[in-house]
Every structure is written in C-alpha cells, then in structure tokens.
C-alpha cells in the first residue's frame, strides 16, 4: 500500500507530466484560456489515459510479449489511443455539446497528445505490474488535470493584464508562467518514488 502511495505522489507531483516530463504542452497552451474547457479537457485526458492503460497493458502482455512483437508497441498503442479518442469525441458530442464546441480542434488532436501515449509507454517501459500501472496512470492524468486547471485560472487573469510587452503576449508569457510553476513544483522533489 505504501508503495502505491509513493508511486502516485511521484507521478502526480514530483515527476509531473507537464512540468517535469514536458508532455501534453499543446493542449496545455491551446485549451487553457477558459477554466471550464480546461477542466473538461483534463477530465477527457484522464478518461482516455485510464482506458488506454488497461487496453495497452492487456495487449502488450498477452499478445505482443508472448510473440516477441515488442517492437510493434508504438504502432499498436497509437492506434488504440486514436480509437479511444474517437470514442470520447462521440460521447462528448452527444452528451455535452457546449464542451464539444469549446474544445474544438483540440478534441480530435488528443489522438496525438503525447501525454496519453507517454503515459502508456511509461507503464510498459518501467515494467510495472497491473496495479502499479493503474496507479501510475491515474497519477499522471490527475497531474495533467491539476496543472491545466491551475494554469487556466492564472491565464484568465493574464489575458486581462495590459502591461505585458507586445511581443510577449500570448504563448511567450504563457511559457514563462509555466516555467515559474515548474520552479514551484520542483519543491516536491524527493517525495514519493
């Protein structure tokens, strides 16, 4: 149990997917202008990472590994992720049309979200057991949700501020803000495993 908590804290805060591993930067910069859509994006990513982790774990250990096809993992995982993203897209379109509109192009682009492919690859590369892989995947996706939500609250205020140099408006100042958040999160170093 202690190991699971360590693993979760490590994936959630210490090795945060955005601030320490640099995954999922595109949706972070693209969908963070409004709190509600940032939260929706975070939840969608959480769902896809969890579902894809179960699926890729089963396929890797029951099909690819016994037949020595490990080198096929990248191709197989990308296709699995793309199908889950397609499913989430249809679900959100049907049941949450406003969210569907506000996410726009970034919803289908989740198929090429490196946080998702990264999470399932980390599960396999670190040779985690099924339980550990689930805890790790949950930590990673909860970490993404946390950062994109915090960042969107900062960014909503940033958009109103008028004393940013012209050239630094938009993406450059956003990157600097993420940098400062990353310094803050470096304070968690040493916790967990």
């Amino acid at each position: 149990m202690h190991d699971f908590i360590g693993l979760f804290v490590g994936a959630f805060l210490v090795q945060n997917v955005v601030l320490a591993s640099f995954l999922g930067i595109c949706p972070l910069l693209g969908v963070s202008k409004k709190q509600s859509s940032a939260f929706g994006m975070g939840v969608a990513v959480l769902f896809v990472i969890m579902a894809a982790s179960v699926m890729t774990f089963a396929i890797y250990h029951n099909i690819l590994a016994p037949f020595n096809l490990q080198f096929m993992r990248t191709i197989v995982f990308v296709l699995i992720n793309a199908s889950f993203v397609q499913f989430v897209e249809m679900f959100i379109k049907k049941f949450m049309p406003p969210l569907y509109k506000s996410l726009g192009i970034f919803l289908p682009l989740m198929a090429t979200n490196c946080a998702i492919l990264g999470a399932v690859l980390i599960n396999i590369d670190r040779r985690l057991s099924f339980g550990e892989a689930m805890v790790n995947a949950f930590g990673i996706s909860a970490g993404f949700l946390l950062i994109i939500f915090i960042f969107s609250t900062i960014r909503e205020r940033l958009e109103l501020s008028s004393n940013i140099p012209k050239g630094f408006k938009g993406i450059p100042i956003a990157l600097l803000v993420v940098g400062i958040m990353s310094i803050a999160f470096a304070g968690f170093a040493g916790m967990g495993s």
Binding site: L19, L176, A186
Partner: peptide
C-alpha cells in the same frame, strides 16, 4: 536552473517572445 525543467520553459518563452517582438 537552466538545465532543470523550469529553465526549458523560460528559455523557450524568451526566444519565442524575442522572435515575435522582431516580427511585430
């Protein structure tokens, strides 16, 4: 700091900011 993760965001932000200032 510059070889730590935070440095990556800051250096990229400054480079992109300088380029867009030149463009403007």
């Amino acid at each position: 700091l510059f070889v730590m993760p935070a440095g990556a965001f800051i250096v990229l932000g400054v480079i992109v900011g300088i380029i867009s200032t030149i463009k403007i």
